[in-house]
């Protein structure tokens, strides 16, 4: 897997504000239901994530896409992993990680380097920095492919979904690289 920064110094595109506002009123429980299935699948297929999380496995990570009106709160406990979607950050999160949705997805896939995003101020962390570091290293080692993981939720339609999402992802990455070359 080639990293994005192998050719790009530019930020990935943001979700248009209009789209963010349009999806803001959507009910959250259906999204939570789908994302919990997604989280279960990732953690059950990649149990080594818990080894690397170590004592931080039960902590609550608030993932805040800066271009979406939602916050994802993940509790990666081995026995009962849980993901909730909220509109306002609750005070009981151990750590908060903020960046654009595209950056967060690229981080999860290991296409971006977390330290580089911190240096360029595209990523902000608050709270338990040690837990965030453990999470970053656990995810980076897992070599997740989000298109394949989401595709896996769709049963017999999984392969076409994976191809569609993979093509969309690659198009976004290519557009960022093109913008960089033109700038």
């Amino acid at each position: 897997m080639r990293s994005l920064f192998s050719t790009s110094t530019d930020a990935l595109p943001l979700i248009p504000p209009l789209l963010g506002r349009a999806i803001s009123p959507l009910p959250l429980p259906p999204l939570e239901f789908v994302l919990n299935g997604f989280l279960d699948r990732i953690l059950s297929r990649n149990p080594q994530i818990f080894d690397r999380l170590g004592p931080h496995a039960g902590k609550r990570f608030a993932i805040k896409p800066t271009d979406l009106p939602f916050i994802f709160v993940i509790e990666a406990a081995a026995q009962r992993p849980c993901l909730s979607v909220v509109r306002e950050l609750s005070a009981d999160a151990d750590a908060q990680i903020s960046s654009s949705m595209a950056n967060l997805l690229a981080l999860v896939e290991g296409r971006l380097d977390g330290d580089a995003l911190m240096f360029s101020r595209q990523l902000a962390i608050e709270g338990d920095v040690e837990a965030v570091l453990a999470l970053r290293n656990a995810i980076d080692d897992a070599r997740l492919d989000m298109a394949a993981e989401i595709g896996g939720l769709f049963g017999p339609l999984g392969e076409p979904v994976r191809r569609l999402l993979g093509a969309a992802r690659d198009a976004i990455l290519r557009s960022a690289q093109l913008q960089d070359r033109l700038s």
Binding site: R2, F5, G110, D113, D115, R143
Partner: peptide, 12 residues
């Protein structure tokens, strides 16, 4: 301490 993206790009 850096991620795979760093390792891959800097080594290459």
């Amino acid at each position: 301490q850096r991620g795979r993206a760093y390792v891959e790009s800097v080594v290459r």
